[in-house]
Amino acid sequence: MLLEPPPKLVGEKRLTFRNLDWHEFKQIQTLLTERTRARFTYDNGVLEITMPLEGHERSARLIELFIRVLVVEMGMKIKTMGSTTLDREDLLKSAEPDNEYYIQNYALVADHEVNLEVDPPPDLVVEVDITHTDLNKDTLYASLGVPEFWRFNGREWKVLQLTDGKYVECDRSPTFPAVAKQDLYQFLEAALLDEVAAEIGLRQWVQQQIKA
């Protein structure tokens, strides 16, 4: 099951720069962060600046709600990182994903501000890319060592698990193995009509799954 997108679905505006060194990238990021709500992704000389539009933001926030409900109802722990910048100058890579979380490694980072020089990367990263991106984000997040990467293009949800340095697509999330792809699709379809009812329905469904 896939979601049916509206015609000519546009979720982001993008601008790409090439052949930028790390210092130049950081100058642009600092300058524009003060003036815009743009997101910045840098990969070995290529900088992509993204301005999320409504379709992007709504999908990202609903997926965030989906994850929050699963964590709470399943009795798990979570540290939400939002779009915190993941900088690795040594790898010439930087990303500001839509959502990022510590779940399995919650205890390792719960009591301090994360420092990627000593702390592990987030356990789960979520990116919504409805319009085309020039960057290979699978390679980027694999290089950062992110164990689980969710991608949503407005229609299809891909669950990627890091295996031997590369992502392998999975039918189910390693973090939430009880959840099938159709469960997210059904939640998103319901939430587009009534977010409150969709959240209540999801909580009831998770509680039933736990009791089963």
Rank of each mutant, 00 (worst) to 15 (best):
K211V: 09
K158W: 10
R61Q: 01
P122K: 08
E73W: 10
L9R: 07
E189Y: 12
E127F: 01
M74I: 10
R37K: 12
R39W: 01
M74T: 13
L65W: 07
H56E: 04
R14T: 04
H56A: 03
E34H: 09
L2D: 11
T85P: 03
E156H: 13
Q207K: 15
Y141F: 13
E127V: 02
G201L: 15
K79M: 09
A191W: 01
V159Q: 09
K13R: 15
W150N: 00
I103D: 00
Q27P: 05
E169K: 09
F149M: 02
T85L: 09
L92F: 11
E195V: 08
D98W: 00
N99D: 01
M51E: 14
K79F: 06
L2Y: 12
E169G: 10
Y102M: 05
V179R: 01
D123M: 07
V46A: 10
M1A: 14
D134Y: 08
L3D: 02
N115Q: 11
I63M: 03
H112A: 13
R68G: 08
A191N: 05
T16Y: 02
D90M: 15
I78L: 14
R58F: 04
E89T: 08
R88L: 07
E96R: 06
F40Q: 04
K79S: 09
V196Q: 14
D119Q: 02
N153Y: 02
Y101L: 02
V71E: 03
H23P: 03
A197C: 12
L32Y: 04
L86F: 05
L65C: 08
E12R: 08
G82K: 02
Y101E: 00
K158Q: 14
W150I: 00
G75Q: 14
K158N: 11
D43L: 04
R35A: 09
G145Y: 06
E48A: 03
V206W: 01
H112Y: 10
L135T: 01
E54W: 12
T36L: 12
Q208Y: 14
G75W: 11
K93T: 11
E73P: 08
L192R: 15
P5W: 04
W205Y: 14
